[in-house]
């Protein structure tokens, strides 16, 4: 009896993910080595059914930038134990397929200050066409990084450049100046 309910519960969990089109999903603390392994898995999975190298590379690029943003900017961080380690950031990663198009969703907790910055930045990027994005990428590339940024402004522009539709983003208020930030990008 017990084992049946157990399987049922997790089958429901799995079906829920499948229903959202997920071909890969991860929730929890993300490290650079998880990024690498998930990225390798993703490439194998996609190359299997998509022979267009350019498409695979765009998807991979969006994946890398988004996951690095979770690692670096999630408000839930696990500090390194020694100088060789990099910090871990907690979040959610879903790569999936919807209406024959690949998407990458990344989500993580952020502070109110991050929310305000991101909202302004992403609203501006979502309204730009490919030429404008290319120009703003070139401009940012030559500028020193912004305050509190490890290069995220460039990463988000890269994400927007590779997306096939306008980027979608949303914030859920978690109270006490915390927000659940979600970014969905079709490639």
């Amino acid at each position: 009896m017990m084992s049946q309910r157990l399987a049922e519960a997790y089958y429901g969990f799995k079906c829920d993910q499948d229903g959202k089109g997920a071909i890969l999903s991860y929730s929890g603390f993300v490290s650079e080595s998880i990024l690498f392994s998930l990225g390798e898995t993703l490439r194998r999975r996609v190359e299997h059914e998509d022979s267009d190298q350019n498409h695979t590379k765009r998807l991979f690029s969006v994946f890398v930038e988004q996951v690095q943003n979770v690692i670096r900017y999630s408000a839930e961080q696990l500090p390194p134990r020694n100088p060789q380690e990099t910090p871990l950031g907690s979040g959610l990663i879903v790569v999936g397929m919807e209406e024959q198009a690949f998407f990458v969703v990344c989500a993580n907790t952020i502070t109110l200050q991050q929310k305000e910055q991101l909202e302004a930045r992403l609203t501006a990027l979502a309204a730009m066409d490919k030429d404008a994005l290319r120009a703003v990428y070139r401009k940012k590339l030559k500028e020193p990084p912004e305050e509190g940024s490890l290069g995220a402004s460039l990463g988000l522009i890269e994400v927007a450049r590779r997306s096939s539709r306008p980027i979608e983003f949303d914030f859920l208020d978690l109270q006490e100046e915390r927000f659940f930030f979600c970014l969905k990008v079709f490639v």
Binding site: K57, F60, S61, V64, E65, Q68, L141, K142, P145, L150, G151, L154, G155, I157, E158
Partner: peptide, 12 residues
Amino acid sequence: VYFNSSSAKALM
């Protein structure tokens, strides 16, 4: 063949 945005900064 591929580089991320942090590497782009380094290339620059």
